[in-house]
Simulated scan of single mutants.
Amino acid sequence: MTDPAYQRLGLPSAASPYAVLRAAVRALHPDTRAVRGFRTARKRFYRQMLCAHAARQAAGDPPSG
């Protein structure tokens, strides 16, 4: 099952990892990005989005968006 947060990014399966990262950064509220104490959680979120995207590419899912 795909992560719901990843699905909300609305990226095609052919998107580059950099595009996934940019979309994930934009998905977070600016206040959330500004809190230094959330840095580890933000990095974990970005890693999860990249892993979900890599899994989707490996599965050969059709593009969406």
Rank of each mutant, 00 (worst) to 15 (best):
V20F: 01
Y6C: 00
P63C: 07
S16A: 12
L21S: 08
T32I: 14
A52K: 05
S64H: 04
D31S: 02
V20Q: 03
A58E: 08
A58F: 03
A52Y: 01
C51Q: 15
C51K: 13
G37I: 01
A27Q: 13
M1A: 13
A19Q: 15
P12H: 02
S13E: 07
G60L: 07
P30D: 11
Q48C: 08
A5I: 09
A34H: 03
T32W: 04
A52L: 04
L50Q: 12
Y46V: 12
R8I: 05
C51V: 14
S64M: 03
A24Q: 04
A58L: 14
Q48L: 13
A34C: 01
R36A: 14
C51E: 14
M49K: 04
Y46S: 09
S16D: 12
Y6G: 01
G60D: 02
R47E: 13
A19K: 06
M49W: 07
P30R: 12
S64D: 04
A52D: 13
G37Q: 12
S13D: 07
Y46P: 06
A24P: 06
R36W: 00
P62H: 10
A58I: 02
T40M: 11
A59E: 02
A34I: 07
A14T: 15
P30Y: 06
R36H: 04
S16Q: 12
D31C: 00
K43F: 11
A55N: 11
A15S: 13
D3A: 10
A14M: 02
A54V: 05
T40H: 14
T2G: 00
A41P: 04
C51P: 01
Q7S: 08
P62N: 04
H53M: 08
L50K: 11
A41V: 10
A27F: 11
A54I: 05
A34Y: 01
S13T: 14
A34L: 03
P17G: 15
G65Y: 02
R44D: 14
D61G: 05
R44G: 11
D61F: 04
A15K: 06
G10P: 06
R33N: 12
A5V: 09
A52C: 09
S13M: 07
A41Q: 14
F45L: 11
P4F: 04
A5W: 07
L50C: 07
A55P: 05
C51A: 14
Q48K: 14
G37C: 01
A15G: 00
D31H: 03
A15N: 04
P63Y: 08
G65N: 06
P4S: 05
A24R: 08
V25Y: 08
P4R: 10
S16T: 15
R39V: 12
Y18Q: 14
R56E: 10
H29I: 00
H29V: 03
A23Q: 03
D61Q: 10
Y18E: 13
A54P: 00
A41M: 14
L9Q: 07
P12I: 00
R39Y: 01
T40N: 13
A15Q: 06
M49T: 08
R36N: 10
T2Y: 06
F45H: 12
M1C: 11
V20E: 03
L11N: 03
P4C: 03
R8S: 15
A5E: 15
A15T: 04
V35G: 00
H29A: 12
G10A: 05
A41G: 10
V20A: 02
L9S: 09
C51N: 15
